[in-house]
Structures are given as C-alpha cells and as structure tokens.
Design a protein around this nucleic acid. Sequence first.
DNA 1: CTGATATTTGAACGATAGTACAACTAGAAC
DNA 2: GTTCTAGTTGTACTATCGTTCAAATATCAG
Lengths: 191, 191
Amino acid sequence: MSDSEEHTTDGRQARGNKRRAEIIDATLAVVTRDGAAGVTHRTVAKQAGITASLSTYYFATLDALLVAALSSVADTYTKRIRAIIDGPDDNLRGLAELIVESGGPGRDRALAERELSTLAARRPALAPVARHWRENVAELAATLTDNPQAIDALVAASDGLCTAILIDNIPADTDYVHRVLSQAIGTRRGH
Amino acid sequence: MSDSEEHTTDGRQARGNKRRAEIIDATLAVVTRDGAAGVTHRTVAKQAGITASLSTYYFATLDALLVAALSSVADTYTKRIRAIIDGPDDNLRGLAELIVESGGPGRDRALAERELSTLAARRPALAPVARHWRENVAELAATLTDNPQAIDALVAASDGLCTAILIDNIPADTDYVHRVLSQAIGTRRGH
DNA sequence: CTGATATTTGAACGATAGTACAACTAGAAC
DNA sequence: GTTCTAGTTGTACTATCGTTCAAATATCAG
C-alpha cells in the first residue's frame, strides 16, 4: 500500500475490507469444524464475534459468503504454489511439504479446498475456481517435466495425497509424500 | 437366496429391507443433486415418494441415514473393484474404466464417495469406511506391482482423477485415464 | 380367532435458518 | 454545521428442520 493510497482511501473502506476478511476467516474455521454444511450466517457471526446482521451486510446471501470463503482458499494456494515455483528450493519437495501441511497447520485450508471442489462438482460456475489448484500444481509440474502424462499423474496424485492425509490414511511425512510424488512423475523407479 | 430362506423369512423383513434400500437410493440421488447438505428426512422422503415418518422409522436419525447411504457406496465400490481383480481383463484398464464412470453412469456414486471421504475428514468414526476405497484400489495395484511407492502413487492418482473428472477438468476418456495411471504406477515412461 | 410385531401415517413441538427491514451510529465530504 | 454514505444492531417474518409420539393398518405366529 503506497502512501498516496493511504491518504486518499476512505477509512470506512479499509474497515469494511478488514471486516470482510474476518468474516471469511471465521467461515473457514466453521468449515473446518463442521463442514460447509455448518456454515450459516449465525454460526459464522458467532465464530467471528459479530452479529448475524453484519454477516449478511457484507455477504448478501449465504451462497455469496461460502463462495467468497472457498475462493479465498484457492487464492491462498495459488500464492503458496507460486512461491514454491519462484523459490530457490526443490519444487517437488516444496509441493510435498505443502501437501503434508494438510495434516497440520494447513488442515483447515485443505478441508476448505476439498469442500470447494466437492461443491464445484455440482456447480459448474465454481469449477473454474476449483481448477485453480490443479492448474497451479500442473504449472509446478511443468518445471520438472514436459511429459504430459507425468504432469497429469502428479496433479492427480497430489490431490489424492491431500485427501489421504485428511482421513489419516497415510502419514503426514514429507519424505514419504516426496517419494510418492517422485514415483508419480517418474523420477523414481522402485525396481 | 435359497429356497429354505424363502419359505421361512418373515415377509415383513423383506419388505423392510426393500424399503430401506429404496430410501438409500433416494438419499444418493439427493446427494448427487444437492450434496450431503441437502439430505434431510423430508427431501429424501420426497425423492423416494414416501412420508418423512417412514424415513425416520427406518433410519432413526439423519446421521444414521447419511452414514448408511454413504457406506453403501463404499460397498458398491468394493464389489466393483473385486470384480475387476477377479476378472479376466487387464486390471489397470478396468480401474481406468471405473474411474471414467465418474463422469457418466457412476457420477452419483463418485459424488457420494467424495462426500463420504470429506465427511470422514471430520468424523474419525467414518474414516474406516472412507478408507475402503483406497484399500481396494491398493489391493488392485498390488496385482500389478509390489513396489509400495507405485501402489501408493496409483491410489492417490486414482482419487485425484475421479475428482478431476467430477469437475470437468480432464476428459472422461478411458485411454487417457489409462495412460495417466500407467505413468503413476511406472509401467509407462514418456521418454 | 387373538396377541404380538412390523409398517405406515400424520400431527405437532421446539429449534434454527435465510432473509428483510428499520433505526441508529460513525465516518467522510462540502 | 449539514448531508451523504458506510457500518452496526436488533427485531421479526416465513419456512424448514430433526425429532417425538400416538393411532391406524398390515403381517405373522400360535
């Protein structure tokens, strides 16, 4: 935020944006705890420590709220994956670390992303947002290989690994996840 | 059903089981249309052409109904995958065909399975059921390779591919899916 | 036939939801 | 200061929900 913006911005706009973000955070907390089905204006308001009227003031319909919250998760992932791609470290390992976060600090994010793609399966309008994650992972994969099948396999495996971690089907262990990803993309052969 | 069972079975039991199955089918239809969140005794009853009281008679709580419906999907997948393993054809291709069904005749089933695993991420009691799919696919993979990473990569990729098909991110095409699976398991090298 | 049991139906309760709306407060511009 | 606009609050409506319960009907066994 440049200085010029700071002096000309209506303070109420900033307040509104901050409040909007708080509501979205609260929504994601509710999604994590109760699933997308648990998101109501009242549950979110309570979680955010505000009145339900405020929630409806900022998000006119429950639908708008849900879409905004879930879309914000897609944005977060985009940023994270971009950072991995642009960073100095091994992209595949970075991806493995991101996936492993699904079992820890990134659990709410992973759950929300999952709710989004599940919702998108029934709501074509949401599909583009849901595809972001895949597109981002595909972009990262393209830095590792130019084989289309390998790229697609890595994208699919990444998704499946997140789910497996969410349901405690596999260990949230970076080395393990890295090995599976390597297998999928073809840089590791078991025998 | 053997003859002896037919002569000794209380007709009311059969009626009840049939009704129970109808209600579960209606539930899955509602899941497909509106998601798990759309499942209420009333919506299911309407879908099944019965009264809501009947729905609550057979499934005492909404939770019991949801769990039963989603679990039945896991059973269906188990049977299908078992049939592929036991069948005469190529297991990997059979798996590809099963995955491709997610975009067509098996869409409701795939959606329900997805709702189940999403629910299971928040409900540890459901996790064992949600893991069935994975365990079944892993068993099928074990007929193709004994490399643990390859097995895990195939399981993860299968899951991810189903999702991608559900959100129209990839073509529901058997050859394509088969190629990606082959890549993941390591039987195909791009170059 | 009677008594037991399974199935079916409808009414109703308390709770919660989405949403609408009006009044009030706060911030900004002139 | 006044006027406009954004933010905040509380009330209330209609609708739906999960669940409970009792009555009626159908099926089965003796």
